[in-house]
Amino acid sequence: MSQDKAAGVTWRPVAAVTADIVICGLGPAGRALAHRCLACGLSVTVIDPAPDRRWSATYAAWADELPEWLDSGVRAATVQRPVAWTTRRHEVDRPYVVLDTARLWDSLDITGARVISERAIELGRHTVTSSSGTVATGARVIDARGIARSPALAEQTAYGVIVDAERGAGIEPMFMDWRPDNGADPGAPRSFLYAVPLGGGQMLLEETCLAGRPALDGIELRARLEHRLRSRGIELDGAETVERVRFPVQGGRPGRRRFGAAGGFIHPATGYSVAAALTAADAVAAGDSVWPPAARMVYALRSAGLRVLLTLPPTDIPVFFDAFFTLPTPLQRAYLSGRDDLRGTATAMNALFAALPPRLRRTVITAGLPRSPSSGPTSERGR
Score class of each variant (00 low, 15 high):
Ser130Gly: 13
Val92Phe: 05
Asp109Pro: 08
Gly133Phe: 13
Trp105Pro: 11
Arg94Pro: 05
Asp106Phe: 09
Asp93Glu: 15
Val97Met: 03
Val115Met: 05
Gly124Lys: 11
Tyr159Asp: 13
Gln80Pro: 10
Asp106Val: 02
Glu155Ser: 14
Asp143Gly: 05
Ile121Val: 15
Val83Ile: 12
Thr127Met: 08
Val83Arg: 15
Asp106Lys: 07
Tyr96Phe: 15
Arg149Ser: 15
Asp106Ser: 14
Arg119Lys: 10
Thr157Leu: 04
Arg94Cys: 02
Glu155Ala: 14
Ala84Lys: 09
Leu99Tyr: 01
Arg125Pro: 07
Arg103Asn: 06
Arg89Gly: 00
Thr137Cys: 15
Gly138Ile: 10
Thr127Asn: 13
Glu91Phe: 08
Glu118Lys: 09
Pro82Ala: 06
Ala154Pro: 03
Ala144Glu: 04
Arg89Gln: 11
Ile147Asn: 05
Val128Gly: 08
Pro95Ser: 10
Ala148Thr: 10
Gly133Glu: 00
Leu104Gln: 02
His126Phe: 02
Thr111His: 11
Asp93Pro: 02
Val83His: 10
Pro82Met: 02
Thr127Pro: 12
Arg81Tyr: 02
Gly112Arg: 11
Arg94Thr: 07
Val141Gln: 05
Ala120Cys: 02
Trp105Gln: 14
His90Lys: 13
Ser107Lys: 00
Val92Trp: 04
Ile142Asn: 02
Thr111Met: 06
Thr87Arg: 13
Gly124Pro: 07
Ser130Cys: 14
Glu91Arg: 13
Ala120Ser: 07
Gln80Asn: 12
Pro151Met: 10
Gly124Ser: 08
Ser150Leu: 00
Thr86Ser: 13
Ser131Pro: 09
Gln156Asn: 08
Val97Asn: 01
Ala148Cys: 08
Ile142Ala: 07
His90Phe: 07
Gly138Pro: 08
Leu108Asn: 05
Tyr96Lys: 07
Val92Met: 10
Ala148Asp: 03
Ser132Pro: 04
Thr86Phe: 14
Val115Glu: 07
Glu118Pro: 00
Gln156Glu: 11
Ala136Ser: 06
Val98Leu: 07
Thr87Cys: 04
Arg114Ala: 03
Ser132Arg: 13
Arg125Thr: 11
Arg119Trp: 01
Arg145Met: 09
Gln80Met: 14
Arg89Pro: 10
Asp109His: 10
Ala154Asp: 08
Asp93Gln: 13
Glu91Val: 01
Pro82Trp: 05
Val97Cys: 00
Pro95His: 12
Glu155Lys: 14
Ser117Lys: 14
Thr129Gly: 00
Tyr159Phe: 15
Ala144Met: 06
Asp106Leu: 05
Val79Ser: 06
Thr129Leu: 09
Asp143Thr: 03
Leu104His: 08
Ile147Glu: 00
Arg119Leu: 01
Arg140His: 04
Gln80Glu: 15
Arg88Phe: 12
Thr134Asp: 01
Leu123Ser: 01
Ala154Cys: 06
Leu104Thr: 06
Ala139Asp: 14
Glu155Asn: 14
Ile121Pro: 00
Ala158Asp: 13
